[in-house]
Amino acid sequence: MGFYDLSKSERTQLADTIYKEISEAVSNSQLNGIRHYFSDEDTYIRKTAYLSIGKLYKITEKTQTEILEILDILLKSDNPKVRQTTINAAGEIGMQNFEVVRHFFDVGLFDNHHSVRNAVIGSLKKMGARNPVPTLKWAKGYLEHQEKEIRREICHGIELRGRTHPQDVLPLLKKLQHDETSRVRNTLIHVLGQIAYKKGCLETVVGTLKSWDNIELVKLALDEIVDVHHRYKNFAFLSQQQAITYINQNFN
């Protein structure tokens, strides 16, 4: 039975049990007690496990070293689910202290399994939103990496910070405007659309795009921004027509 096959009260009880057992496993350096949950087939069991690690790290200072040592071992697991959950756990810690988990993402970016690399993207999103300065500094170092998939993953990963603070990520995104790889270029256009529909963001994105010199890409990005204001019309600050009007009035 999966996590969400349970009633709300049963889910709460299970989450409490997972937290308690992981806490005991950390205290006793029992990797199997953590590996058991990190390898579970149910995504939400694994999520509860990595959230438990993040909570333990935050509230139990005396076990922080032990937690990091355990995660270092689990990152070497042959099971991609364990490595994926380890990266997600590192992301929870990175929202508080990025430097102590930086090496997890240096490794995870190059993992041979897509789920682990996707965990890097997801972690980058939440760390960028909550702990942006060191996270974005780290991301910047990979934006011109020779491997196209690394550039694409970093581009995607900084999106969430851009939704509330587009000015923080636009200088990084600008480095990709002449990228010749279609997957990177398409992700860049997607991200520009995603960071332009919240209150005050359209103005910042459009104002910045005026300084970019890849006119073809900018046109595609503006089309995506207009389309996003329709696709996300229930969440966008402006209507699609208001977005069109603003772009026409402020962009030549």
Rank of each mutant, 00 (worst) to 15 (best):
E153K: 12
G108A: 09
Y37M: 03
Q96C: 04
C155F: 00
G141V: 02
I87L: 12
N118Y: 14
N118Q: 15
K126P: 00
R102L: 14
H156S: 07
F110Q: 06
Q146C: 03
M95Q: 15
G157W: 01
K62E: 15
L56S: 00
K76E: 15
A90E: 06
I70S: 08
L109D: 03
K76T: 15
M127A: 03
I150M: 09
C155T: 11
E41H: 05
N131R: 03
K47I: 11
D111F: 04
V107T: 12
T86V: 12
V107I: 14
H113A: 10
R102C: 03
H145P: 06
H114K: 14
L136Y: 00
T86M: 04
R130P: 00
T43I: 11
I59R: 07
Q146K: 13
N88P: 01
V133H: 08
I70W: 07
D106Q: 15
D72W: 00
R46E: 04
I87R: 07
G141N: 04
D72R: 03
F98K: 06
G141P: 01
E144R: 05
I87D: 00
W138Y: 05
I67F: 06
H156G: 04
S52F: 02
V116F: 13
E69S: 12
W138N: 00
L71C: 02
T60D: 15
R83S: 08
L109V: 12
A139C: 13
K47Q: 15
E92D: 03
D72T: 05
N88W: 06
I45L: 05
I150C: 09
I73M: 12
P80G: 07
E149W: 13
I93D: 08
E149A: 14
S115Q: 15
L74C: 10
N88S: 09
A89S: 14
L71A: 00
R102T: 13
K148T: 13
F98H: 04
N97A: 13
K58G: 03
L75Y: 12
L124S: 11
E92P: 02
I150E: 06
Q96F: 13
A49Y: 01
M127Y: 05
F105T: 03
I45G: 09
Q146N: 09
H36P: 10
A119C: 08
E159I: 06
H114N: 11
I67C: 08
I150V: 15
N131D: 00
V120C: 12
K137I: 04
T43R: 15
E41N: 10
H36N: 13
K140W: 02
V82K: 07
F104R: 03
R152E: 11
D42I: 05
H36E: 07
F110D: 03
V100H: 13
E61M: 07
L124N: 06
T135A: 06
R151W: 01
F110I: 05
N79D: 14
Q146D: 10
G91S: 05
D40I: 10
F104Y: 12
L136A: 00
R46V: 01
L71H: 03
G94N: 02
K47W: 10
